[in-house]
Amino acid sequence: MNFTLKIWRQKDAQSKGAFKEYKVENVSSDTSFLEMLDILNNDLVHKGEEPVAFDHDCREGICGMCSLHIDGHAHGPSQAVTTCQIYMRQFKDGATITIEPWRSAAFPVIKDLVVNRSAYDQILQAGGFVSVRTNSVPDGNAIPIPKADADESMDAAACVGCGACAATCKNGSAMLFVAARVSSLAKLPQGRVEGARRAKAMVAKMDELGFGNCTNTGACQAECPKQISIAHIARLNREFLAAKLKD
């Protein structure tokens, strides 16, 4: 298969970027999207040009490192997968594919397609944890948790922190990410204890970092590689409002 790639190139955070066109030829349909970029990069190296920088690591859809806005979709045209799980057979032979970095004020570009997502770390540092010390905990089975609650907590915990939600949201809102963590812990008795404090602290940090206001378009859940539901956003809203009203 052959493709024309329109890729965003940007030297560093300070420089202005622009699209550049590349051709990749004779790519097998079983090649993954990132392997296709590997092939392009290997060609570029041989030509003495700087390869395209892009984030990736586990290539199994779990580490959340890969990003890329491909033809208008965060993580490409398929549903429920990360960019590393996209295969070239999903594109038309001869297609022109536009590849952009995440675009969000809170995710500044570092180079080419690589962005800085440390804002997500900062939000979690604000309260995305249960304050327990190592070793001062009860037995794992001391508190039974209804299976449905544990399952729902797990649904939310599936978030890989890739940033697709904020990147795809027209408002640059990180609500799905924040909600996933708040909701996951809120469904467990262990997390309930400091639920109110957590919701307030994480929302405050999210606002402080310049993420936008959620308008419930649902684009985040549509593009989320882990299909996290906006029902968790509703729960975050509940948690937050209840906490505020108690203040």
Binding site: E100, R103, A105, G172, S173, A219
Partner: peptide, 21 residues
């Protein structure tokens, strides 16, 4: 605020996501 949060550079290609009105 939301426009500001979106950043100065916009996507060149945008689509309507599945299930989004």
């Amino acid at each position: 605020q939301n426009r500001k949060a979106r950043g100065n550079v916009r996507y060149a290609v945008t689509v309507t996501e599945k299930g989004v009105s």
